[in-house]
Amino acid sequence: MTAPLLEVDDLHVRFPVAGTGLTGRGKRLLHAVNGVSFSLAKGECLSIVGESGCGKSTAALSIMGLQEPTEGEIRFRGRPMTGPSAPTRMERAKAVQIVFQDPYASLNPRQTVWRSLADPLRLHGITAKSESADRIAALMRSVGLTPEQAGRFPHEFSGGQRQRIGIARALILEPEIVVLDEPVSALDVSIRAQIINLLLDLQDQFGLSYLMISHDLSVVEHMSDRVMVMYFGQLVETGSWQQIFASPAHPYTRRLIAAIPDPAHFGRISAEPFIDAPNMFAPPAASDLTEIAPGHFIRRTALEGAARA
């Protein structure tokens, strides 16, 4: 196994939540991300799944450098991305880029696609007109658009085309890791397949590593190599996609998978019973993950709970 590209070690992100009353008494800390550790290998697609408020987006923002972690370390190729020796925004840009969920809000409406792609290149020292033109043209073709279309403004494109442009912008600096934040959930159903196919093609073509944030388990199963399940700020289960989908061990994972409405099972709605939500204001519980199969980890508290029941 090669050395991991990205390592996240005991990541904590806490937000102060204002108390009530005039004096604002009872200010508490919300543990949005509560002791999350993982690593991402070169060429791998790792997905974080969970529902709204589980901390998956906050974790991704920390990796992007858009949210300062409260505790913990993030390393890229062994080099710390946080703390005093953190890289500058410019250095970080070549390591990690992001594709956003909403293709309508993710492009500057007052810039042509060309400018959105050429400006970052210029900023990073590619000043020769011909070189940046070549790179933009090649990239436009890679994402399934024509170089001529770069002269247009975002509003002249459909949602699916905009998402292609968003992907092009994420790739223009040739990063090694691309964070995909719900990359298809805002798109029309018939467009989703095209974007999923494109993302998989680009991963092959450029040897990209994906960190995908999603709540859509059918997309996760289709795209991922490994899956992490987050529940109220904590990692509750992690394993290969086969392990997670074929033998989910944590009750929350089972509940998530059972909740997917599947066209193949008409008339069936299944829902596993609720499990107790951890208190997000409490200090982290014992963060031990137990390995139940090679590479398949599950939070121990859940196992104990299951054993008690």
């Binding site: 992007m64 450098g65 858009l66 500058t88 925004r89 410019m90 250095e91 970080r92 840009a93 990690v96 880029q97 992001i98 956003f100 969920q101 909403d102 809000a105 993710s106 492009l107 500057n108 959105s116 400006d119 970052p120 900023l123 990073h124 968003g166 912008r169 994420a170 223009i172 600096l173």
Partner: peptide
Amino acid sequence: SQGYVQAAQTLGYSDLR
């Protein structure tokens, strides 16, 4: 909080830019 402003941050733009 718009995506393109966050994207600009990740692309290495300075605050003033």
